[in-house]
Amino acid sequence: MHIPLLAWIILFVVIIGILTFDFFAHVRKDHFPSIKESAAWTAIYISIAVVAGLVIGLTLGWDLGGQYFAGWVTEWSLSLDNLFVFVIIISAFKAPREVQQKIIAVGITLALAFRLIFILLGAALIEHFSWIFYIFGLFLLFTAFQQVREGNAGSEEEEEYKENFFVSWVRRIFPVTPDYVGHQYFAKIDGKRHITPFLLVIVAVGTADVMFAVDSIPAIFGLTKEAFIVFAANAFALMGLRQLYFLIESLMERLIFLHYGLAAILAFIGGKLIVHALSTNEIPFINGGQPFTGLPEATIPVSLGYIVGVLIITTVVSLLVSRYRERKQSDGTATKRPEA
């Protein structure tokens, strides 16, 4: 389906408007948001995302509306994994609590720009090379396997932040001040301009999200082929991530089965992509270059129901098991007697 240029313009205007409000009216003053504030803004951003989906459904058709909601829920769930990495990065850089909100806001804005490039590139590849679905599907299946491995190792190994190539390169090229200077990006020491750890941690957060885009972008292309829907779902999922970070920061360690839930979602979409690739097959050495007929493909309602169901089950089971373990540990500590 051809997406009208007006729809793209409206989407960009809305996104720029929200980001402008975020920077100049919300995070302008350095502060660490309370649970109440974070919950209120999380609800607001979820409402905005839902309204966006309803507008898409009413104006462009409910087929695209359903694709948007499936994509948004998927991106939102995969973004939960981002939050774990954000915690590790911000902790590693010892960022003051009062500037953490701005760090995440700027980092997410950078990530959104990077993702737009990935999305346009992915759409172009899909348009010209149908076999790319094989690669996307296999990559998502591999990523699902990696998520399971991380889930198995999570209770035994504490993750440590390792600087990526880009952050290391920036650190080598530009001198860095030893301490934060409020939320300033640059500072002068002995007449020489330095970058601050504030700028460096923003680079770390923004580029870290690019790595997540490598699996999340193929995942959403497994639900829709429209670049407009892919970008809209990514944008509204990412923009609400800052508030969600502060809301569930204390709950992250309780989501002990999150990796398994994400693995189930990625494996489902990866399998969906492989089935679609077989249904549109053009590779000569597979079935003589002919597509496979009669293969069942999950519809958008089925996909959305599966993704939401997995998220609910993963969250509920994680919280119940975490509470049970904490209670068991507490009871064990209470009944333990000191040795004579």
Results as ranks from 00 to 15, higher is better:
residue 254 R to E: 11
residue 73 V to L: 04
residue 202 I to P: 01
residue 294 G to T: 12
residue 14 V to E: 14
residue 285 F to W: 15
residue 72 W to G: 04
residue 83 L to S: 08
residue 339 E to T: 13
residue 321 V to P: 01
residue 216 S to F: 01
residue 114 F to W: 12
residue 100 Q to I: 13
residue 272 K to D: 00
residue 310 V to D: 06
residue 277 A to C: 08
residue 308 V to T: 13
residue 225 K to V: 09
residue 326 E to C: 12
residue 283 I to T: 08
residue 117 I to T: 10
residue 82 N to L: 12
residue 8 W to I: 01
residue 178 P to M: 00
residue 326 E to I: 13
residue 305 G to H: 06
residue 31 H to F: 12
residue 97 R to K: 11
residue 60 L to K: 14
residue 332 G to Y: 15
residue 1 M to Y: 00
residue 268 F to N: 10
residue 135 I to Q: 00
residue 74 T to W: 04
residue 171 R to I: 03
residue 104 I to E: 13
residue 117 I to S: 08
residue 330 S to I: 14
residue 314 T to Y: 08
residue 265 I to H: 04
residue 339 E to C: 13
residue 44 I to T: 08
residue 232 A to V: 10
residue 149 R to C: 09
residue 164 N to K: 03
residue 309 G to D: 03
residue 182 G to C: 04
residue 283 I to N: 03
residue 113 A to C: 07
residue 122 G to W: 01
residue 44 I to Q: 08
residue 85 V to M: 04
residue 222 G to E: 02
residue 84 F to A: 05
residue 100 Q to F: 15
residue 11 L to N: 03
residue 310 V to K: 05
residue 297 E to Q: 04
residue 65 G to L: 01
residue 325 R to S: 03
residue 200 L to M: 02
residue 53 G to P: 00
residue 70 A to M: 03
residue 285 F to K: 10
residue 68 Y to C: 11
residue 2 H to A: 00
residue 44 I to Y: 11
residue 65 G to V: 06
residue 326 E to P: 10
residue 104 I to R: 14
residue 186 F to S: 07
residue 182 G to R: 05
residue 295 L to I: 02
residue 144 A to Y: 14
residue 215 D to E: 00
residue 170 V to T: 06
residue 158 E to T: 13
residue 293 T to W: 02
residue 205 V to F: 01
residue 169 W to Q: 10
residue 17 G to K: 14
residue 255 L to V: 05
residue 147 Q to I: 12
residue 72 W to N: 07
residue 191 G to F: 12
residue 322 S to C: 03
residue 205 V to R: 06
residue 321 V to Y: 09
residue 268 F to A: 10
residue 14 V to K: 11
residue 131 W to R: 05
residue 336 K to M: 10
residue 280 T to P: 13
residue 53 G to F: 00
residue 302 V to W: 06
residue 209 D to G: 05
residue 176 V to C: 11
